[in-house]
Amino acid sequence: MNRILATASAEFAIAFRNRWVLIAVVMMVLFSMVLSAAGSAPSGALGADRLSVTVASLTSLAVYLVPLVALLMSFDAIAGEVERGTLPLLLTYPISRAEVLLGKLMAHLAILSLAVAAGYGVAAVAAIAVDENAASGLPSLWRLMWSSVLLGATFLGVGYAISALSRRPSGAAGLAIGLWLVMIVLFDLGLLAAVVADDGGVFTTQVFPYALLANPADAFRLFNLAASEATAAAAGVSGAATSIPVWQSLTSIVVWPVLALILAVAAFRKVTP
């Protein structure tokens, strides 16, 4: 445990000096502020409080931004050590490869939590300032926060795996961006196209819900929107999505970080320094 904490504290110092803490926080705060400003049109028509509406739009933002920030922080984790030549020495110390990754994960998750808390906090303050009923949306904001951290953990783990597999930072960066595009953008577009082509057939009823659950970003979106149904309409989530029980999407967002970390450790074990 001590070794993991020591690794985390060294990684945090490195991320702080490399301005990753600043970049992550500024990015989340900036986008949240833009969203709050854009969403300031009257929303009383939907009958939801301001904060719940903000949470719905923050969810759509987080689906893109949290995986991106997580991948940007993690792609260098192992490939960078290989390129700098720091890995052989580290691996002769009495620390296991899993512990090295857990230490890095701890530091990166702390940074991500900080960024998420700052960004969502700003949006919450903005919502509460204009609507006194907004406090009733606090539980959904809290849910969004911890599920964002879990989503981040998944993509951090995936990023470490990519980093270990490609062994060169440039290759890892390319793979990370590619993966982000496929999992966050193309996956949904592909599903949408399939659903349209299928026109309510077997795919839409049997495969589509599981395809959504299999993608951690979609599961995250489902979980947050389904859990606050009042705002689901505001985000225009499809009918099929709301039919998926919350426990299923919750399972997906909890299991994914564990899977991603197992994948990362397995990939890291294959690296010969």
């Binding site: 060294a10 110092a13 490195i14 000096r17 490399n18 700098r84 030549g85 720091t86 020495l89």
Partner: peptide, 8 residues
């Protein structure tokens, strides 16, 4: 050719 993280 020992190396360390330059930021530490």
């Amino acid at each position: 050719n020992v190396a360390f993280h330059p930021a530490l």
